[in-house]
Design a protein around this nucleic acid. Structure first.
Lengths: 352, 352
DNA sequence: TTGGCAATCTGTAACGTTTCAGTATATTGC
DNA sequence: GCAATATACTGAAACGTTACAGATTGCCAA
């Protein structure tokens, strides 16, 4: 049955949530006028406008989201689409906080739309678009030819990608410059006298895999070092697998004396594998690793570290989507984060 | 202006999203009948019901959330309320996935409602309740006398807490048995011959702080070991602070030979502090630590580890809220997760 | 005075759904 | 044969909002 209201409505000082009708009654104006006064429409008298806004603030009026959404189609929702198995753990937490920071003083809510490894990554996007569940979407694990980006571009729904695409289509993105990261990492290792380098790369298929590989390769030839192939694993693989493969690699005659690693958790496995093979970090081998939370230096002070700020990524992505929703040109909403210096907490010569 | 539809509506095979009206037109029935047929109302003929449901499935009908929400007040939203600074990182990621798993085949969406350290934790709850933004709420960092739980209980909005309260009020919760954890940890340390134990505890004020402290204290007297107070830090403090305080502590004449730590990141700092003081894990001191992702053993194989599964917590909490929304008794929606064994990857005597 | 025109304000309809209060038809009881 | 009663369906109203198409007023030019 209907939720019982007190008689006809209004004027009873019921504890109900105020609506435009309530405001209209209180100000003696029409609902339409109130609606327009609240959004600073031009054809409302200055005094009326102020009066309405004052009353609205006083009684704590909040527009009903369902009403707005039904009438206008605007959801005031940003959806963050995440893979429930393969995202980097700190990524999830930090990006959420980054997005939250930006949307905190907007009417937007953040909904998390998960999909699992077995699913087509397009599934959650289709769902969102078909049901009109969000005004904007943020996706990660971006591919050079990304079906999701293409799909959303076709339907005209604003989105931003974490990572770039290579489809010749323009859309907002935020990316970390993994080319620069890998290149700097190689230079840093070369500076430590390392000559045979291996790369623990991002998973094949994602755009930043090739960025990383290219930065690695280019800097390799620049410094005249050589590559020890290590493409049987990526940072997406399990800790155990990375560890055993690393140990295998390190027991070969020709083994790396330097690693570049694209993720902190993978680096733990890398180090474990190296030590399984009886070798020592900082003496037999150096590692430059990305990290997103400041913990790796506690793990092994010999690690060389480059920070990637996922909270910043979240903020940038949120700003980008909101910008697009607000009508800005998608091409103006792209940003690239430049890696900082390679940080050494303890030099491999033993000093601190 | 109004979103232009093709003429009057319907029968044009427009690419618009199907509504009840569309279904009504296609089946030749009234909107009301269609609505009821879809939700298996009793007064609809069996054949009609099947016919409507078939057509609905065929054309991919999805009820409009805004319509439902406006009419019924049901949002089909669960809100996860998180502190943007103080949550354990893996907690955020895992609990989201746990919740997602459970709500995946329901109409529910998950929204993340953040609040910052400086804010009153009640703020986001008030917002949710006042704006009717969610059918159910999940909160963490639960306190013995929790204003948020009390508030929601008063307003009759379904929620579940991660951690228990002690207000004599009954509500759904999921909790890890931190009393058992701390007690088992102490027994395990005592079994390794450790006699002077310190506790790196959860932050004072949260319910599980006292659970942990009590388990620690009770087991201490049970095994006849003594406590070295270490209450100047908790796992909420910064890595740096924990590290320096630990180092200070370990340089005292009377120092612990065993630690119980309630969080993995804090354990990293703990170990760093111990090693800063020139002591060695497994020889001078043992640590039993909780962890939520399987990484600590890579950090130091000497660590003694107890796992806490946050994904499970997320699932249980989601189940609890949904259960309450569905009309189950709040008292029947409480669960306690029992810690597993203390895991040793390498015995402190040096064997593996 | 009249007509025109800004400047303000207002009622109605519509978004998609569910609930209420029916209506129409067939079935039953007597 | 007729009323009572199930059974199966339906239109209208309402949730809160905004867009459209007026209303009403005052003021100014002619």
């Amino acid at each position: 049955m209907d939720k019982r209201r007190t008689e006809k409505n209004d004027e009873t000082s019921a504890k109900e949530r105020p609506t435009l009708k309530t405001l209209a009654f209180m100000t003696g104006l029409g609902v339409t006028t109130v609606s327009r006064a609240l959004k600073d429409a031009p054809e409302i008298g200055a005094e009326t406008r102020r009066r309405v806004q004052l009353v609205a603030k006083q009684i704590g009026y909040r527009p009903n989201r369902a009403g707005v959404r039904l009438r206008t189609g605007k959801t005031n929702v940003i959806s963050l689409v995440l893979n429930t198995e393969q995202e980097i753990m700190s990524f999830v937490s930090d990006i959420i906080y980054g997005v939250s920071e930006v949307i905190a003083d907007t009417p937007y809510h953040l909904i998390v739309t998960p999909y699992s490894r077995s699913q087509d990554p397009l599934d959650p996007i289709r769902y969102l678009v078909e049901t009109g569940s969000a005004d904007g979407v943020i996706i990660s694990r971006t591919q050079p030819n990304d079906a999701r980006a293409r799909y959303m571009l076709e339907r005209g729904i604003p989105f931003a990608t974490h990572g770039r695409t290579e489809m010749g289509l323009v859309h907002p993105y935020h990316d970390f410059d993994n080319y620069a990261f890998a290149a700097e990492a190689v230079r840093s290792l070369a500076g430590n006298g390392r000559r045979r380098l291996a790369l623990l790369s991002p998973p094949v298929g994602l755009t930043y895999h090739s960025h990383t590989v290219n930065g690695f390769a280019d800097a390799l030839s620049e410094v005249g070092a050589s590559e020890i192939p290590f493409s049987t694993v990526s940072i997406d693989h399990s800790i155990e697998r990375i560890r055993t493969r690393t140990a295998q690699l390190m027991r070969r005659d020709i083994r790396p004396d330097g690693f570049v690693s694209s993720a902190a958790a993978a680096t733990l496995a890398l180090v474990a594998g190296i030590e399984d093979a009886g070798l020592k970090l900082g003496r037999d081998v150096d590692i430059v690793s990305k990290q997103s939370s400041d913990l790796l230096h506690l793990f092994r002070p010999e690690l060389l570290i480059v920070n990637e700020n996922f909270r910043l990524a979240g903020s940038e992505l949120a700003r980008a989507v909101l910008g697009w929703i607000g009508g800005a040109a998608p091409g103006s909403l792209q940003s690239l984060s430049v890696p900082g210096e390679v940080l050494a907490y303890r030099r491999s010569d033993g000093s601190s």
